[in-house]
């Protein structure tokens, strides 16, 4: 018993040393990693909604989380929205962010995370020739929800050769999220216009007190 206790104690000392030194390394790298993630996120947001200058998180009580993009600091009328969606691909959960225009069409999409098969599924982010954007992503620009179908399902999004599951996962996940968003926002659209105009009035009246 005493022997086992001693062994346990020795093991604990080793793990403690390991834990403390890792804590130190973590302190050094953490801000760097967070900075990288923030830059990546902002780059993706700019990519799909270049018109917007300011992004504000949605604060309404609805079930969806999205960002609202405004073209100026005044934050009066949105130029678009940004949503995040996940699709079950061939070997990974594919994370896509996409922008939605004010008439509920897709603005642009950007696949931010995927671990699909190299050479097949990963071609969803492949860039051809001098094009600035992957050809697969570009097909989604300004589509309405009902047009978000790959060719195998009767739509006209050209799917990636040999990677129908990946293509379908992306198209379907975007479509689903967009429908959901349309339902949530469409239902309350009348109200929201009313609210924004009220807010604008209040800003005009009490302009000096506005924090930003």
């Amino acid at each position: 018993m005493k022997f086992i206790l001693k062994l346990g104690l020795i093991l604990m000392v080793y793990t403690l040393i390991a834990g403390v030194s890792l804590g130190f390394i973590n302190k050094v790298t953490k801000p760097k990693i967070e900075e990288q993630q923030r830059m990546e996120r902002e780059r993706a947001q700019k990519e799909v909604l270049p018109e917007a200058l300011v992004f504000v998180e949605d604060t309404t009580s609805g079930g969806l989380d999205y960002l609202i993009g405004y073209d100026s600091e005044g934050r009066t009328s949105p130029v678009g929205y940004i949503l995040t969606t996940f699709g079950d691909g061939f070997s990974s959960k594919i994370k896509t962010i996409f922008s939605v225009t004010t008439d509920f069409k897709v603005g642009a999409i950007e696949i931010v995370y995927q671990e699909e098969t190299p050479g097949l599924g990963t071609r969803c982010v492949e860039i051809k020739g001098d094009s600035p954007e992957p050809w697969f992503e570009m097909q989604f620009d300004s589509r309405s929800p009902q047009d978000l179908l790959v060719d195998k399902d009767g739509g006209n999004i050209t799917s990636i050769t040999g990677a129908t599951i990946t293509s379908r996962a992306i198209a379907n996940s975007v479509q689903e999220k967009l429908e959901e968003f349309k339902n949530e926002l469409g239902a309350s659209k009348e109200d929201s216009i009313l609210i924004t105009s009220e807010v604008r009035d209040s800003i005009e009246i009490g302009g000096d007190n506005e924090p930003d």
């Binding site: 793990t15 390991a18 834990g19 890792l22 973590n26 953490k30």
Partner: peptide, 10 residues
């Protein structure tokens, strides 16, 4: 969270 690998293997 950064200790995840070492915690899991132990």
């Amino acid at each position: 969270a950064y200790l995840e690998t070492i915690a899991f293997i132990l």
